[in-house]
């Protein structure tokens, strides 16, 4: 199981590099779908079945399909080419940053044991301590739906 999760993680990172250099919008969105499915597998392998199900339903089933539907409706085919000079500058700064992050993480005492929570404990905390944030998220979703409708409405 551990080796399987290791390979999945490596595959996810490689696919995210593929999106940076890809020329085809459809292939980019399909590799985004594979990334979402892989992160869902990581959620399940690390012990949270609920986040696995929500990840596959909301991201892989909702958001990716919505993006594919939009680009097929608009007929977007052409895309840009990445400039190599910008890529070199960006990757230089990224690896400089990663060097510092690695120096911080090198001696950090990560726990060997992974704690698992029961779902009723998590939802008790969510609906008692975080009730205001929960209601605000529902308000943001409602505003998003109404706002999207108002933006695309024909005058």
């Amino acid at each position: 199981m551990n080796l399987f999760l290791f390979i999945t993680t490596l595959l996810i990172v490689l696919l995210s590099y593929y999106i940076i250099f890809s020329q085809n919008i459809t292939y980019s969105i399909l590799s985004l779908l594979l990334i979402f499915l892989g992160i869902g597998i990581l959620y399940m392998g690390l012990g949270s079945v609920f986040l696995f199900i929500v990840q596959w339903l909301v991201y892989a089933g909702g958001i990716v399909v919505l993006m594919l539907f939009t680009i097929y409706t608009l007929g977007l085919k052409k895309t840009d080419v990445v400039k190599l000079k910008e890529v070199f500058v960006a990757f230089f700064f990224v690896f400089l940053n990663l060097f510092f992050i690695w120096n911080i993480f090198k001696n950090y005492p990560f726990l060997k044991k992974i704690t698992a929570f029961k779902m009723d404990f998590i939802f008790d905390t969510l609906l008692k301590d975080y009730i205001l944030a929960f209601e605000l998220i529902s308000l943001i979703l409602l505003t998003g739906i109404v706002g999207a409708f108002l933006i695309v409405r024909e005058k």
Binding site: S48, L51, V54, Q55, V58, Y59, G62, I63, L66, M67, T70, T73, L74, F117, I122, T125, L126, Y130, A133, F134, I137, S138, I140, L141, T143, G144, I145, G147, A148, F149, I151, V152
Partner: peptide, 25 residues
């Protein structure tokens, strides 16, 4: 942290709805 992960799903879904509407326009 897990509760924040659950709340972030909602924010991402609202963001993509607005973003795709702006793209269509």
């Amino acid at each position: 942290g897990e509760i924040f992960a659950i709340l972030l799903f909602g924010i991402a879904a609202a963001g993509i709805a607005i973003g795709l509407a702006i793209l269509i326009n």
